[in-house]
Write a protein that binds this DNA or RNA. Structure first.
Length: 193
DNA sequence: CATAGGATCGCCT
DNA sequence: GGCGATCCTATGT
């Protein structure tokens, strides 16, 4: 159950990283309670050249500054005034790549996740969306933005879970219709188990 | 200062 | 399938 090392995040191919994050385990410790889930869905956001990215065109703002920083850091922002969306920053400083985690399957701290979600859905559906998984894991953009994923608040572990590539659907990203032709890029990975 | 809109979700019909 | 929630960010005056 080792944390992914900085060498996992400090790489150039953000699409490959998004693919390799499928089957890894996203973990949080909030109020001394640990919750974990297997990552089942990701999307790559390829920085200055990607119209779907907040950092497209090299746009540096208070919000996007995190992505221009070091790899292996959380980038969490508020979406629609309601949902905290969790990303990991990749590549080297000044290259604002990130991977959005869009779904997990709970494996530890399940009771805590169920109570946070207050949902009667089956387990596999309580964290199958970017806003839902943040709620389940207790991730909030005020408290969890810009954290080092090698520390003990939010991190990602390798449990040596084997993923059959045939079970991973690759397609266009969700909710990025504003991105023109980049909306069609096959940057989304979804593990159907 | 004012305003528009968003990498979503859940409830309603 | 449609829509309202809800508040921060970015931009423009």
């Amino acid at each position: 159950m080792k944390k992914l090392p900085i060498s996992f995040y400090d790489r150039e191919d953000v699409v490959l990283i998004a693919q390799e994050l499928i089957g890894k385990v996203l973990c949080t410790k909030v109020n001394d309670v640990i919750t974990k889930g297997i990552i089942t869905e990701t999307e790559a956001y390829a920085g200055v050249l990607d119209k779907a990215s907040h950092a497209f065109g090299g746009k540096r703002t208070g919000r996007t500054e995190i992505m221009f920083g070091k790899p292996g850091i959380s980038y969490v922002y508020l979406c629609y005034g309601v949902h905290s969306l969790f990303n990991v920053v990749t590549n080297k400083e000044n290259i604002p790549h990130a991977v959005l985690i869009r779904g997990i399957h709970p494996i530890e701290g399940v009771e805590t996740m169920l109570s946070r979600r207050k949902s009667k859905e089956p387990l596999y559906k309580i964290a199958d969306g970017p806003g839902k998984l943040s709620k389940a894991l207790g991730i909030e953009f005020r408290q969890h933005n810009n954290l080092d994923l090698l520390e003990d608040e939010i991190w990602i572990e390798d449990h040596s879970i084997s993923v059959n590539p045939k079970e991973v659907l690759i397609g266009p990203r969700i909710g990025v219709g504003y991105a023109g032709e980049d909306a069609l890029l096959p940057y989304r990975f979804l593990w159907n188990r």
